[in-house]
Design a protein around this nucleic acid. Structure first.
Length: 589
RNA sequence: AGCCUCGUAGUAUAAUGGAUAGUACAUGAGUUUCCGAAACUCCAAAUCCAAGUUCGAUUCUUGGCGAGGCUACCA
């Protein structure tokens, strides 16, 4: 049992014994003691002094004595400061922890493993991936790893938005302007190639609209009347009718895009057990509309369109089938949710999607619940904020996006530059160097995008935002590499016979012991930033420890053994923490 | 108009209602005869405003002000 749980339970038991009051262990607040006070863990007394009708000092003294008596090998001292009961934990406890910690299973597996689907990435096939997609991909990858390390079975899926008017725009522009050019004929990555035509479409569209407006048309009308827009609409119609030539071009251009995506996904580490294509799924959900009608979850209006009334749940009315009988977005998503559940039999389904769709997912979950679809309660939306630039929102139509490939390449280039300047890897082969630059560059980028609460929108300043010092991936990678280098020289732990701990040694042990709780917190909140913050704090603490205390030249052999073991545990914990963020840690850098 | 997020030093961020609001970058001052200085140490600097609940509020409630998003028979 972990120490905090133990302290909570003992507090509750002691209170029951002393005062005959029942307080559940979850109600007991146990915190790490602030450094300026004596002690390791603190029980906050205010919560129960009121119902006991005694002063905090009296309760503190009685409770402290009782707890020490209950846990004689764990608690060595206690003191009370203004309603805070501080406990000092015995060195023996921490030494036993250091000795017994297993680097192969730092996180105990959950007792209730589930099958969890994580859907992430959701690209459009009319343009390459950008910075926003990177945040999405890194969040999806990370949350999948966090759940895996807890012992859940994870299925990663992707839904590709491969049809619709936006793709037709790229297709039209290609027909108009490409003269038969292809990615290979222009030596361009396929997704970028197609994306260029999307931009060309918009340029042409804008120019045409401007011309029409100059000729006296209103902006609104001009946007509807522009011939290039009409051509795109017509193409969408042909696509829906199954026109062979249109489908051929669509398939051809999409295949270019997929080739490009594959390169990017491989580079950033994204993979999927199953990829769904919207062109296959956009007709799903039709039977569900019928079911919903017969279950009276949905109702039909006079024009024969079908709706659900969610006003009772504080939301609006929502259409689920148009009067012409076709599905809308939400209907497709309900159908896809059902399909995925049928195929994989998952208990939980996590959607990594931007926060502009918060309302959509609230509605989706509600409808699935009302239709009594299996695992409807397991639907979770991992909602994340937009990534914006100092100049404002990114707009792919206007070409003001930070391209994913460019950014990744730039990060790798910077890591190369910095690594070369330090000259610590002269013994690496060129393949090893390439791998190292990738590890560091991607580590910096992933960490930067994962270290903040996903819910918050973030501003990305390409020039200033990326750093290799401080609260960054490379800082943690460096700390790991340094520990490994030290351990290569000192050898492994032989045995621990020491019986005392210096404050920094104990502090490090305490920090190491909280890792499983951090993982649980991150999983519960679908928030990898908790792990990123933890990894940084641990690395920082180790660096302080290392600056103060020598490992190789420790005061005694027994001290050396303890510190080697602390080094081993720190390196393993950093490696595990970074792994669940999708970041590798090098042995040397 | 309604609904949902968010507002913390110059910048970026942290804090299940708990102690003197933590951290990084940038700024300033230091630390290499000793295990890796991508490191460490120290200085300075912040909770949008106003009420309320509480022993205690960055956190909860209400009202302002400000930013973004959603309220599509687009996806």
């Amino acid at each position: 049992m972990n120490l905090i749980t133990n302290l909570k339970q003992t507090t509750a038991a002691s209170l029951l014994h002393l005062y005959q009051v029942t307080i559940s262990p979850e109600q007991v607040l146990v915190n790490a003691t602030k450094p300026e006070f004596e002690g390791d863990y603190t029980v906050v007394l205010f919560a129960f002094v009121k119902q006991l009708g005694k002063s905090p000092d009296v309760v503190g003294n009685e409770l402290g004595a009782a707890m020490q008596k209950a846990l004689p090998t764990i608690i060595t001292h206690y003191n009370i400061v203004k309603g805070f009961l501080n406990f000092t934990i015995s060195n023996d406890y921490w030494l036993a922890y250091i000795k017994n910690a297993d680097t192969k299973s730092l996180v105990p597996p959950t007792t209730t493993p589930q099958k969890i689907m994580v859907e992430y990435s959701s690209p459009n096939t009319n343009k390459p991936l950008h910075l926003g997609h990177l945040r999405n991909n890194f969040l999806g990858l990370s949350i999948a790893e966090i759940l895996k390390v807890q012992g859940h079975e994870v299925v990663k899926t992707c839904i590709v938005n491969d049809r619709g008017i936006h793709i037709c725009k790229s297709m039209i522009a290609w027909q108009l302007f490409a003269n038969g050019a292809t990615p290979s004929s222009t030596n361009k990555k396929g997704d970028h190639f197609v994306g260029d035509y999307y931009v060309k479409y918009n340029d042409a569209f804008k120019a045409e609209v401007a011309g029409l407006v100059a000729g006296g048309m209103t902006q609104e009308l001009a946007e509807k009347e522009a011939s290039i827009f009409k051509a795109a609409q017509e193409m969408l119609l042909k696509w829906e009718q199954g026109d062979a030539a249109t489908l051929d071009l669509w398939k051809r251009m999409n295949s270019w895009v997929y080739e490009g995506f594959e390169v990017t996904y491989k580079k950033i580490g994204s993979d999927f057990v199953k990829t769904y294509y919207e062109s296959n799924t956009y007709l799903l959900g039709k039977e569900l509309v019928e079911q919903g009608l017969s279950k009276k979850v949905f109702y039909q209006k006079e024009d024969s369109s079908v709706w659900i009334d969610l006003t009772g749940d504080g939301l609006d009315e929502k259409i689920v089938r148009r009067k012409d009988g076709t599905s809308v977005y939400i209907t497709q998503d309900i159908g896809l949710a059902q399909l995925k559940q049928k195929e994989f039999n998952n208990d939980v389904s996590i959607y990594v999607v931007g926060d502009e769709q918060n309302y959509h997912f609230k509605v989706l979950k509600l409808i699935c619940q009302k239709l009594s679809l299996p695992a409807a309660d397991g639907i979770h939306h991992l909602s994340y904020g937009m990534v914006e630039l100092p100049t404002g929102k990114m707009k792919s139509r206007e070409g003001t996006v930070v391209d994913a490939d460019d950014l990744v390449d730039a990060m790798i280039a910077i890591s190369k530059e910095k690594t070369e300047a330090l000259g610590k890897v002269s013994d690496f082969t060129s393949d090893q160097l390439t791998a190292l630059y990738n590890t560091i560059g991607l580590g910096a980028l992933k960490f930067f995008l994962l270290r903040v609460d996903p819910k918050k929108k973030m501003i990305f300043n390409p020039e200033e935002s990326i750093d290799f010092h401080g609260f960054t991936g490379p800082f943690i990678q460096y700390t790991h590499a340094r520990i490994k280098s030290i351990l290569r020289k000192t050898g492994v732990t032989v045995s621990i016979t020491n019986n005392e701990l210096l404050p920094l040694e104990k502090q490090l042990a305490i920090e190491l012991s909280t890792f499983p709780a951090i993982i649980n917190e991150a999983a519960e909140n679908l928030d990898p930033s908790k792990v990123a913050i933890y990894a940084f704090n641990l690395a920082k603490l180790f660096n302080t420890f290392y600056a103060e205390l020598s490992i190789a030249n420790a005061e005694s052999e027994t001290k050396k053994q303890v510190r080697i073991q602390l080094g081993i545990l720190t390196a393993a914990t950093l490696q595990n923490a970074m792994r669940v963020l999708g970041i590798e840690v090098p042995e040397q850098m």
